[in-house]
Design a binder for these strands. Structure first.
Lengths: 118, 118
DNA sequence: AATATGAGTGCATAAGTTCGCACCTATGCA
DNA sequence: TGCATAGGTGCGAACTTATGCACTCATATT
């Protein structure tokens, strides 16, 4: 019951997130936490793409890509627009781009020898 | 094979992540993508804590906290240190703090009125 | 009109996850 | 030595998730 540990390192935020916030955050993270979906989102971080382009880039069967895109759509992370027989996907929130890049970045650092970052 | 969509918005990175990187990133995200675990990590973003402190903060039964902490340990996201009969957990990588805060931040924006732009 | 192509859906199987119970180890204290 | 406390583990039950198959819908092209 003592505030143990070595020493208080920052006490910067101290904000208690609350269950709803945590659930929302976890829900978003669950969407990112699958290699194929992350790949699709990463592609979209470069700008809008059609399903064909996304499918080709991710290297998965069409139904699989479609299912994942459906999840992303239903969770509100991406937007769609129709152009002829193509459907063009795009990221809904620019904020997400930063999150995705931060994630890939982190993984990259972790793999290539763990340099404390710059 | 046409670079469809509206127009190329940035072409900044263009780097293809590759399966291993994506798997690694997804693995890390899976660790974050669970409300209790995210809560624990959020606590740790404020500095090292004992299991008791973490368990109390997260408001879950001890065994549950223990299982989640085990996962975090085994995935290398946290470090442990023993002090008497307490075990003190801490974040392994400072980079992770940014990722966690970015995530909570994103979720917060998304909840409090969706001011994402349209 | 007929057909090919881009995209989405419903469903079943397989695989993974969380939770809580029962049980165990280690440290400190009387 | 005996006991309380901090923390961890193994396992089964319930739940969630990813995948691929078969099928449908819509838009072009001929």
């Amino acid at each position: 019951m003592l505030s143990a540990a070595t020493e208080p390192p920052s006490l910067v935020h101290e904000v208690e997130p609350g269950p709803e916030l945590l659930d929302a955050a976890a829900a978003t993270l669950r969407m990112l936490a699958e290699p194929t979906r992350l790949h699709l989102l990463w592609q979209l971080a470069n700008g809008p793409k059609t399903v064909s382009e996304l499918t080709a880039a991710a290297g998965v069967p069409r139904t699989v890509a479609s299912q994942h895109l459906a999840k992303l759509r239903h969770s509100g992370l991406v937007d769609t627009r129709k152009d002829g027989r193509n459907v063009i996907y795009s990221l809904r929130d620019g904020h997400l781009v930063r999150l995705i890049r931060e994630t890939i970045n982190h993984a990259d650092h972790q793999m290539t020898g763990e340099p404390t970052h710059s």
